[in-house]
Each structure stands twice: as structure tokens, then as C-alpha cells.
Design a binder for these strands. Structure first.
Lengths: 340, 340
DNA sequence: GCAGAAGATGTGAGCGCTAACAAGAGAGTA
DNA sequence: TACTCTCTTGTTAGCGCTCACATCTTCTGC
């Protein structure tokens, strides 16, 4: 096993030797340092090419103290919302020259988020985005290592961490108002799981609009975001007297509800109007196409990276920022004027 | 700016001093080396705790030459299939003690995949999983740096790289046979985009079963996986005479087709039977609930990591493996016996 | 009681890179 | 011509950790 036979990947010194310069000059070429003669630069680049040299980012990170890697903690990236958000984050991060290290949690609880953050801190990421829409995630954000900038997506507005989110309350207002405007006496609501901040916001907007209009607030139903739970809620609503308008907290549950109504012979939108939330790609093709509230997940991801990069740049003097992405009402065929 | 005021995070030497041992002993404790006296270990752990010390993985990686990070290259992680696969990969990788660095491509082409691989190679990942279901990704896999183990998911079986995939051909056979068994004379097919290997496999299985049964092979339609493209195909099929059974290459397009049929008054399954592919969570709640072929994306992710880890362990002497995950037929309400 | 092995700890070198400084070469000015 | 200034390149010292080896201690068996 003589060293010459081992054929280890070439290092900077090898390139330097080949190009007849010092390793420092190679480093300068690689880092686009201005003070390198054009001819020297060319010679170095040629040597790099010939040797198939690739810079060892680990060694670089050791001295610069920057890994150019961002951490992302997320919950169930199988769901459309988190998946789209993470996708937006990844695109924005890469555009800015950063790698993305992912941690997907099965369930979000304080311990899980804390572990994930510890994980990423150990890996020496330069910044972290936490997509933690559940209330129980918040405590973990409080005791994050102070030397790493953090941005929360759809997270709690309390605490001293930057937050990017869609205006859930406003989205719910849009949905509820739309139904009232169509002449419905009141609007029923199928909410998301109680631990979710988004579910809370949507309940709040719904209640607010009903209260402002002086309408009765019907009993709250809730599900777990899954089509099945929406189906079950739909079965109950189908046999509840006086239900003519329903605002369902996400499109998947709305799909389940539509199925329940179809099975029970409740015609949508003739006898009952329904509004969803999210605008997943499928919604437009439901039976009937679903009126819903669109969340721009891509924008959320993009803004979270923007804020994170700003914080990283600011160093110790960064201040917390908040960015709210407006939701958008999307009219389709699942809602219609109330007819007695 | 005296050094004492800078308050840099503690390093191993700080812990060593505090515990009254050498840095090497601290290292031993951290790496669970057996030959450390229990009392010494306790003292070191205490010092670590008091100082809030966290090991610098970058420095460790520099000398061990292992980052304990795996790279994942994927295409549009907004789609259910890739998202689930990546999720499975991430879970399996973390369970094995590895970080996951993600690169999501907007479009998969040779250059894009090559760039992504170069990216990850530079970041010194220990292994790479490429979720590259398009034919054009294959060339990039050929010239991957030989020192990094690679596993392809749903990728081309050519070349010298390990592959994990769902048996698309068999899935298509199941779908087509099911429809023939119901008494339909033949089965129409709405395929995926032509560059996709999965689309090919499904066409192949469909053709094979029709040929074996001596049935006519209808003109092939195709879409781009989106509900809209399925809708358009559905509109065409609705006015094509003699169409009683359709196998659609994924559930989203099937949803679009269902919508088209509903609009055109083509009753499913009474007048026309339809089978999808994937079994996305929504399919069960379509109108009607969709008969489809389930792909176990989680298993695909898990197996790809297993194979990758095996290759990493084997070092230079690894051999290419192939793992095929069987698809599963899921009967629901969108198919019925043919009635003239 | 003593050789030898085994256990516990310390020492020095170096992973591949960048930062800081040093030094040589050429250009412009007095 | 000498002197400064800028441009270009080289030299040295770590970043924080692990590995290989050296050293010191403790135990075992006869």
C-alpha cells in the first residue's frame, strides 16, 4: 500500500504543483480573488480540469466556520402544504448558493423539534427554517442555540423568532363571507386538529365573520386534515337539519365531505355549498370543482429564506421579522346562492 | 476584542481542561470508546454539560473523511410519489444516523442531474440517492464520481448503478387484466409523458395483456400527469365510440378524466370503468372512489437506503443490486362488469 | 514478589483548506 | 536613480478533531 498507489482524490497542493504555483494561488483562483494574473488563473484552471480536482468543502468549512448549508425541520412532507413549502425553501436556498439539510418529523412535539434542532446544530448549519404548524413545537423554538438564526414558518407569533405565515384568519374570513354573501343564514365549519395553529386561525376568522354579521355560530366539527375525517364530518352534517353552507378547513377534508354528501344524496352546490382551504392541484377537478382559499406556499418558502439570509448577514444584531402572505379566494362550482 | 471576550463556542480542549483530562480522553468519551474509566467518563460528561459543548462535526468529518450525510436528488417533490419516496428515504437515513441533503430539480434533464450530483459530491456526501424517473436522467448517472456510491430510484436499469423500483409493468398488467376480467372488450390507456420510464412500463404492461388476450390495442392517449391533462384526455374519450374501459397512468389524471366524464354525462362505472395508478390518499374519496394500483413509496425509500448503506460499507467491492417492489391492486367503485 | 498483559490516559501529527502577513516584481513619481 | 505604491505570489499558522503511538497504571498468575 504505497501512498502513490492509493490514488486519493487530488487536493489543492496537487493542483498547485501541477500548475507550478503555490496552493494559496489555487485557493485565490477558486475564490475569485481579483489579484491573480489572467495567465496564472488559466494555468490553474487547466490543472484543476486535468486532475479532476474538486474542492473539499469540509476543510473549507472548518476554517471559514460556514457550511453554506441551511437546515429545514418539517412535519410530514407527504402532505401537499408542507411539501410545497419545503420545495419553495429548497429552490430559494439553492438559488442563494446554499445546501439544504432536511429533517422530516413524523409527529411534531416539543422533544422531536428540539432533537431535530440539536441535530442540525451539530451539523453546523448556518441557519434553520422550522415548518412547525403545531402549537407544541413552539417551546422547542424558545431554547434554540442562540448562535444560529432561525425562521419559523406557520409558527407561533410569540417568542423572539422570525415568522413567515399565510394569513389564516383572513382566509377564513374570505371563505365565510363568501358563503354569507350568497345568502346562507349561517356557515358550519369543519376545523383541523386542535393543536394546529392554522386550524385555530381558521376558526377565529370564521367565528369573527359570523359574529360581526350577527349570525348564530353552529357547533364546531373537526377532523385531522385527512379525507376520511372530512368524510365522517360530512356524514354527520348530511343528517344535521338546516345545514346549507360549510367551510372545511382544508381541501382534502372537503373532498371527503363531498363524498359523504354524494353518498347521502345531498347535492352540491344545489342544496349545500362548500368551501375548502389550500387549493391543492386536485381541487379544480373535484366533483364539483371546489371553491377554496389558495395559499401560496412557494411564496412562503421564498420569504422564509429571504428573512433567514438577512438574519445571517446581520449577525448578532438581527431583529425579528414577520411576513404575512395574503390568501386568495378561488371561486369554483361548489358554492351557489341559497335557495329555500 | 480580547480573545476572552469573544465567547466562542467551547471546543474539545475546553472540556478537557475543565474535566482535568486530555482532549483525547474527551474524544474517547464522545465516541464510546470502551477503555475509559467510569469515573473519568462521568467527569467528562459533566464538563460537556456545564459548558454546553457540542462536537464540531465538520472537524470530525475532515479527518474521518465521512460526513454522515447522504444526498438526495429528486424531481418536483410537490408530487405525491416523489414526496413520499423522499420522505421514506429521509426516515430511513435518519434512523441509520445519517443526515439528508436535498436537491429538488424543477425539470430533470441530463445537465440538471449532473449539476446536482456535482453539487453533492462537492459537499462530500457519503452516498447519493437519485430519484430520477425520466429517461434523460440516465446519462448523468453514468459519469457520476466513482468514489461515491449511488442508488437510483425508478431509474433506468441500464448502466452499472443499483436500482430500486416498483414493478410498473406488473402494475399495468394488474389494471388491464382486471378490466378484461370484467368483460370489457378492450382497454384504452392514458399514458404519462413519453420521457418517463414509469410511463413506458405502464404502456408495456397494458399492451402485453391486450396482446396476450388477442384484443385490439386502441390508440394511445397521453398526458403530463396533471389532472388537467387527464381531463382533456377524458373529453376525447367521452366522444370516442366504443370506449368502456380506461386505464389511466396515474390517479391525478384519472381524477381529471372522471371530471370530464361527469361533465359529459358518461356514468362511471355504469357506462365506463376506469382504473388509476399510485393510490394517492385522495383516491378513495373520488366520485366514485377510484380503483387503482398502489405503489408502496415508503418501501422504495427504505430499500434504497438499505442498498446504499450496504454499498457504502462494501467500499470499492460493491456490486450493483436491484430491488423491485411489487405493486398492489386496490378495488374500489370506479370499475364494474361490462354491460352491453 | 515480579514479569507480562491488559487497561487507562497522554502526546504529536496531520486532515485540506483559508487568513494574515511577508516578500518580490513592476509601474509611476520626484 | 531612488522611492513609494500597487499588483502578484508565497509562507506560515492554525480551524477542531481523530489516529497512531507512547506512556503510565493496574491487574493477573505463578
Amino acid at each position: 500500500m504505497s501512498p502513490s498507489l492509493e490514488r486519493r482524490p487530488p487536493v489543492m497542493a496537487d493542483v498547485a504543483t501541477r500548475a507550478g504555483v503555490s496552493h494559496q494561488t489555487v485557493s485565490r483562483v477558486l475564490n475569485d480573488h481579483p489579484n491573480v494574473r489572467a495567465e496564472t488563473r488559466a494555468r490553474v484552471l487547466e490543472a484543476i480540469d486535468e486532475l479532476g480536482y474538486r474542492r473539499n468543502m469540509v476543510a473549507r468549512a472548518l476554517v471559514t466556520r460556514h457550511t453554506r448549508t441551511l437546515g429545514v425541520v418539517s412535519f410530514d412532507t407527504t402532505l401537499y402544504g408542507p411539501a410545497s413549502t419545503v420545495y419553495g425553501i429548497e429552490q430559494a436556498a439553492r438559488a442563494a448558493g446554499y445546501f439544504v439539510s432536511m429533517v422530516s418529523l413524523k409527529t411534531i412535539d416539543t422533544a422531536g423539534v428540539r432533537d431535530a434542532l440539536g441535530y442540525l446544530a451539530e451539523q453546523a448549519v448556518d441557519g434553520i427554517v422550522v415548518v412547525a404548524p403545531q402549537r407544541s413545537a413552539a417551546p422547542a423554538l424558545a431554547d434554540v442555540p442562540t448562535d444560529i438564526p432561525v425562521v419559523a414558518v406557520e409558527g407561533s407569533h410569540s417568542g423572539d423568532v422570525s415568522v413567515v405565515s399565510v394569513d389564516q384568519v383572513e382566509g377564513a374570513r374570505l371563505a365565510t363571507r363568501h358563503l354569507l354573501d350568497l345568502g346562507h343564514e349561517t356557515v358550519w365549519h369543519v376545523a383541523g386538529p386542535s393543536d394546529w395553529l392554522e386550524a385555530d386561525g381558521r376558526i377565529e376568522g370564521w367565528r369573527e365573520v359570523l359574529a360581526d354579521a350577527g349570525r348564530p355560530v353552529p357547533e364546531l366539527l373537526s377532523g385531522d386534515w385527512s379525507p376520511r375525517s372530512g368524510y365522517e364530518a360530512g356524514l354527520r352534517l348530511a343528517v344535521t337539519p338546516g345545514v346549507t353552507a360549510v367551510f372545511v378547513a382544508n381541501d382534502q377534508m372537503a373532498l371527503g365531505a363531498l363524498r359523504a354528501f354524494a353518498e347521502r344524496g345531498v347535492r352540491v352546490p344545489e342544496r349545500l355549498s362548500i368551501v375548502g382551504f389550500d387549493d391543492i392541484p386536485e381541487s379544480e377537478f373535484f366533483t364539483p370543482p371546489l371553491t377554496t382559499i389558495r395559499q401560496d406556499f412557494g411564496a412562503v418558502g421564498k420569504h422564509s429564506i429571504e428573512i433567514l439570509l438577512r438574519q445571517m448577514e446581520a449577525g448578532a444584531e438581527w431583529s425579528h421579522e414577520r411576513h404575512v402572505v395574503p390568501p386568495r379566494f378561488v371561486a369554483r362550482a361548489s358554492t351557489a346562492p341559497f335557495r329555500a
